[in-house]
Design a protein around this nucleic acid. Structure first.
Lengths: 173, 173
DNA sequence: TCCTGACTATTCAAAATTGACTATTCAGAA
DNA sequence: TTCTGAATAGTCAATTTTGAATAGTCAGGA
């Protein structure tokens, strides 16, 4: 229901068409959702059926007509409900990275160290990129701040592991 | 491919049947994967087809027969490849929570504060639970450590937001 | 002018995922 | 002994997601 919340939140500000919605989300909110285009259209269809939004044709010059979505009063009500739900609960993030860590024993210690160093570089690059992002208005900035905070924390955690490994912490197989 | 990596990693240690695999994962590795039973069976089927594992019937007393899976040499090769891939890359986690944060402006400031306080309590409870978890052997412990580290970081981040909100930081609508 | 590559906008068949269900065993309560 | 609730083991239909394809526009270079 979180992707619906986000779509409603964007449509509340202004009417948009599907492509615009996915582009915006993937450019600005990739750190919290991964919304592929076909999924977005699927969700929009469902929300039309649920009466949360309406779809209308927009003809502009010689272009093929586009579908523009606008939020309804029911959609506005759903938005408020979903937002309250989202804000009050804690949704644990999943760390796919940890699968590899859990199986670290299966490789010789120095290979493990070398591979994790690469991960460290990838992570450091992400952090650099996040730091370079331009500031946003209002509470959108919170998302950017959170990403930076999280990446910095992850980096220091990973460095801790690499230090431990260098000291011969977890035994190689 | 990460769930396959994990299944192979478990089957490398000992032959197991489907139910055992999912139970183990959901009990011990919920912080990195969410693997429902039907999905696990689906993946196991695919891995049998790919030749990474084999399935055999196990008859025990009057029980209905169970399917036991064992890893093949091809599976072992796949395991090593997937483990190297997983370890060397950085897989960003997604923060669904941030969707609500991004839309925080849409609620009056004191309601936002109240809702986030609930989230804070849920998060604090998770951290308590994670701290209570018993220690594991070898690199499995890394997963538990990571979870604790992450939850503690999130808690301090959320407290920071709550402080800012209390000082009237982000404007209510 | 014609071609090429990038962007806009959407659809579709195939693949993956899930909630709900079936069926059995077992331990303890009534 | 019979019932009940929990744990074990797995399946299936329906929903959801995805990679790949389609189709038009537009800007710039050859």
């Amino acid at each position: 229901m979180d992707r619906e919340l986000l779509l409603l939140g964007l449509l509340r500000r202004e009417d948009m068409h599907g492509y615009q919605l996915t582009e915006f989300i993937n450019r600005n909110l990739a750190s919290c959702v991964d919304l592929k285009k076909p999924t977005a259209y699927y969700l929009l269809d469902k929300m039309v059926e649920a009466g949360w939004i309406t779809r209308s044709q927009e003809q502009e010059g010689s272009r093929p007509p586009r579908h523009v979505y606008q939020i309804t009063p029911e959609g506005e009500a759903a938005f408020r409900r979903l937002l309250r739900e989202n804000l009050s609960a804690y949704h644990p993030a999943r760390f796919t990275d940890d699968i590899g860590l859990a199986l670290l024993d299966s490789l010789p210690a120095d290979e493990a160290r070398a591979l994790l160093s690469r991960r460290r570089e990838a992570l450091a690059a992400e952090l650099e990129a996040a730091r370079a992002a331009p500031p946003h208005a209002g509470s959108w900035q919170l998302v950017i701040d959170h990403l930076r905070f999280h990446l910095a924390a992850e980096l220091s955690w990973l460095d801790g592991i690499l230090r431990r490994l260098a000291e011969g912490g977890t035994s190689g197989e």
